[in-house]
Design a protein around this nucleic acid. Sequence first.
DNA 1: ACGGGGCGTGAAAACCTTTTCAAGAAGATC
DNA 2: GATCTTCTTGAAAAGGTTTTCACGCCCCGT
Lengths: 363, 363
Amino acid sequence: MSARKKTRTSRPTATRPDGRRRKRASERRGVTIRDVALRAGVSIATVSRVLNRTAPVDERKRVLVETAAADLGYIPNPAAQSLLGRRTGGIGVLLPYVSGEFYSELLNGLDSTAKELGYFLLISTSHDRLEEWQAGARAMFGRVDGLVVMSPILTPDRLEIRSDEPTVYVNTPGAPDGANGFFSIGFSNLEGTFEATRYLLEAGHRTIAHVRGPVAHADADLREEGFRRAMAGHPAEECPVVEGGYHQEEGFAAARVIAAMQPRPTAVVAANDYCAMGVISGLLDAGLDVPGDVSVIGFDGVPSGRYSHPTLSTVEVPVRRLGERAVRTLVDVIQGHRAPPTGVEMIPVSLVLRASSRSLVEP
Amino acid sequence: MSARKKTRTSRPTATRPDGRRRKRASERRGVTIRDVALRAGVSIATVSRVLNRTAPVDERKRVLVETAAADLGYIPNPAAQSLLGRRTGGIGVLLPYVSGEFYSELLNGLDSTAKELGYFLLISTSHDRLEEWQAGARAMFGRVDGLVVMSPILTPDRLEIRSDEPTVYVNTPGAPDGANGFFSIGFSNLEGTFEATRYLLEAGHRTIAHVRGPVAHADADLREEGFRRAMAGHPAEECPVVEGGYHQEEGFAAARVIAAMQPRPTAVVAANDYCAMGVISGLLDAGLDVPGDVSVIGFDGVPSGRYSHPTLSTVEVPVRRLGERAVRTLVDVIQGHRAPPTGVEMIPVSLVLRASSRSLVEP
DNA sequence: ACGGGGCGTGAAAACCTTTTCAAGAAGATC
DNA sequence: GATCTTCTTGAAAAGGTTTTCACGCCCCGT
């Protein structure tokens, strides 16, 4: 019994004298570095060195190890690797939702870039609820090398993600001046609706309605503010703001309100594209023509807008690029290529005119 | 030096005599179970027992440990946990793409169910390329407790995912009879278009076109087959099949072909909803009315279809439920509640008639 | 009063990899 | 030929957790 103690040295798994080990290695998960070492006739240290190219190894042994690893189909156990404090190869993505084309495009950008750079994605949604945020962040803890966070409602300091991992915020308020050391990537919410509204004014529209996005969403507030600024100086009845949301139903409901207004607006700036589609649907339903009676402009530039009927004028956000920039920046920080940035990087948006809006001045 | 050997016992981190450890624990990542044990004045084994409720512990110590853990904000290191071969808490999701409403709804179902059951998602896309499949599967290895795989092109045996982890296939061909021990969840591709086509026939349409999905996609093949079976016995010119795809552009292009046909079809069964929207867009563009001149029916039941114009008739697939069933089944297997099932579970689809199709017999 | 049976608890092994340290071999220089 | 240097290699520690094993204690029964 006391003699056992000193035998704590490496011995081949097969020839171990005492049988009361929990499970034979082969019964457990796949092949380990031991199996490779055994087969190649070298130590596990050498195997590690070969596989990670971390030190020069004799050519013959190198080949031996490589073929042994290939034969056995050896894949290093990621848990053991990250236990050493090395990279996990994961990027955590915290989003409010995943449904809808905006998020699917965002995910697309995040995913392709992550794949290109050799990372994979861990995803968790919060539904804008603080406890789900924190549960998600806790689940990510120690499993990822960095975090991409999009939270249109809760500001970073309220989220209290006290992660040691580098974090990039996307379209998240509360770090407007790069204060608090946060870094975020945003797009021009305010300027987007401002430009869209100004275009409508220049196109001869007088009474323009805005269907705003969900309450307390910072980006919805900014879009409303852009609309208000463009309409500054116009009488209140010429720039009504209607409660809405980011989904078609809400746009549909808002359209009923707008169709009944006196004077009736000849144009609508909607919170986003889905909302705009709902608005169009509701206006048609109320017997109005789009863009004959009412012009409608959306926001986001979702792919469907190109094929909806009428095709949708919109403020186009390069969503995929947004995701790509987020991941690239994050990976740069993770790999130490650059110091953690602070501040806000703004991605410009552009007004895309299609068939759902028309000019009244040059018919 | 030789005296050191026998001191391999637990000692408080702070009082270790030799200073040549790589890093002090406190400098590394957050707090460990040792810190909690130290603060609570118990052994690490007891801390583990309290936190996992794995064995009865004296009430007073339990409280002590719990407050200590809470005070320090202790989060167990997941790498160390999964190193023991325990659960990782992750579910791997391998998809061909993530863009489009079908996938975003699927993700939604997967994500909410996973969250409900205490799992998080690892996501990787393959773009239908074998090497990306295998890279994704390798990246998942050892990081997840199970896999959800959707591969409309490559069959499970061709994918060669030799994962020890339980796997649920979604809408994946090649395990039609539950052969090879695969388990998959599918929906009625063939029956869906069959029913849609039969409806159109009963509604008085004679010449009906099918715009098919991408080549080599098993589900596209099945949908075409459903169309063909419903049209069995009709002369070939009354049931043309046009090359298409799953995106709007392809539907748009197919519409040009259909608009020029002689005799011109009065109805179109499209590969999916996006395709149908493209078809509608293309038909309108060609000066035809939908559903006045041509009826169009899609497939999938994406949310946008309710608000497109005209609103879209479709074969509705309960996509969220699909995701939910996949995760629930998988977690049941992971947790040992049931043996790994084999075979196919079919989720029924339903024909939803909206404004893009009309009956010719009862006007 | 003494022996046996639970029950609670701590020590230490096990999980798998990377990395450091030391040692051995080979080569080079005087 | 001997010593020193360089290069390659293996042994072992470290990383944080769970789990097993064994020990000591208390309580109960005879």
